[in-house]
Nucleic acid binder design. Structure first.
Lengths: 194, 194
DNA sequence: CCAGTTTTAGACCTGTAGTTCAAGAAAGGT
DNA sequence: ACCTTTCTTGAACTACAGGTCTAAAACTGG
């Protein structure tokens, strides 16, 4: 009945996400998006409405993929501490693996846009809350299993771990691997019974 | 012998700093800088060369003022933990006091520019290192005084506290005061002997 | 009070961001 | 084969970013 799209939305959103992640929102021009996605500017606007809306799609995707990775890491066998360690290490490692340090899209977005765009702020918050809920759940399990100090409140501890991750994502911009891993280890020491 | 400047460089840099801090580097246009400083674009370019150079001056100033505040806080009487608590609380409070959450200029800069601009990355790093050195010094003193667990390495602990601060500066974009203070407290609990 | 120098305000310039639009292309229904 | 609909391509458009330039203005030593 009509001409079909000759690209896959998911693929385009994925590529746009990579571009936004690497360059930042403001520095990713429509031309850059066209280049990165292999789709003409016109088609992008036809399909997604605006740069802003495409960004929201990209952020959503990032949150969803991140939540999947987190869930997988936290569901692995091992002590709570091992799981949280894997959680922190994993993000540091994937950061360092990139040729240019791009940090975390959620953190970048919180810093670049959350202050001036309440809707984006809510989207970021939703994603972070989701990860934090997973952490809380895993920590609560650790308390039940007895491998976490029973006096730790799962909620507060989850917030704390999340905060540590946010810090690491920023520190990864300028510090080396050894420092980052050392920070992660120091942060996790709080979980140990003394 | 020649017409004198009719503005004070320091005042202009201070105001430019505020603008960059609030709006971000990319979003602060020359027009916005002229507006914020009360100095015409032409004069700004004459005095500072470029937006980029003015930003470097602003960042330098931020680092210097921050270092002064940190030094003052850490030199106050009280236990190490009280000092570090004041250090973390202070930044959270000043963040929350602003009408729009603008976080920390150094963190914002690390996120927005450090990945693509090595020189800026070095400047950020210098500032952070300075603060971290002050923390290390205070923690080492705490170890000597016996109010910090002696098994804590001052350097690693300082990095850890710095990381916690970086995290808080990001989390302050989207979370409320209660959560932020709770995170700070949890983070400081690691210092206690059990 | 003039000469010489530097600053100033803002007009001006070039490039690009972000978006829209017009014209044609690829379907599917009839 | 034709019509309708939706997509594509790329040119076109407006606004503003970042920076330069100019003509007047403000100082000061002589």
């Amino acid at each position: 009945m009509a001409r079909p799209r000759n690209f896959d939305d998911d693929v385009v959103v994925e590529r746009a996400m990579q571009a936004f992640w690497t360059l930042g929102y403001a520095n990713t021009s429509p031309a850059a998006l066209a280049e990165a996605t292999g789709v003409g500017k016109g088609s992008l606007y036809n399909a997604f409405g605006s740069k802003r809306e495409l960004f929201e799609r990209a952020l959503e995707r990032y949150d969803r993929l991140g939540a999947e990775v987190t869930a997988e890491l936290l569901a692995r066998p091992g002590t709570t501490r091992e799981c949280l360690r894997a959680f922190l290490y994993d993000s540091v490692k994937s950061d360092l693996a990139q040729p240019i340090r791009r940090g975390c899209l959620a953190v970048n977005t919180a810093v670049e846009l959350a202050g001036h765009d309440p809707e984006i702020a809510r989207a970021v918050r939703r994603g972070v809350d989701r990860t934090m809920a997973a952490l809380e759940w895993r920590i609560a399990q650790g308390v039940r299993d007895g491998d976490v100090r029973p006096d730790l409140a799962p909620r507060a501890t989850a917030e704390y771990v999340m905060n540590t991750l946010a810090g690491l994502r920023v520190m990864a911009r300028t510090y080396d691997a050894a420092t980052l891993f050392r920070i992660a280890d120091t942060a996790l020491a709080v979980l140990d019974s003394a």
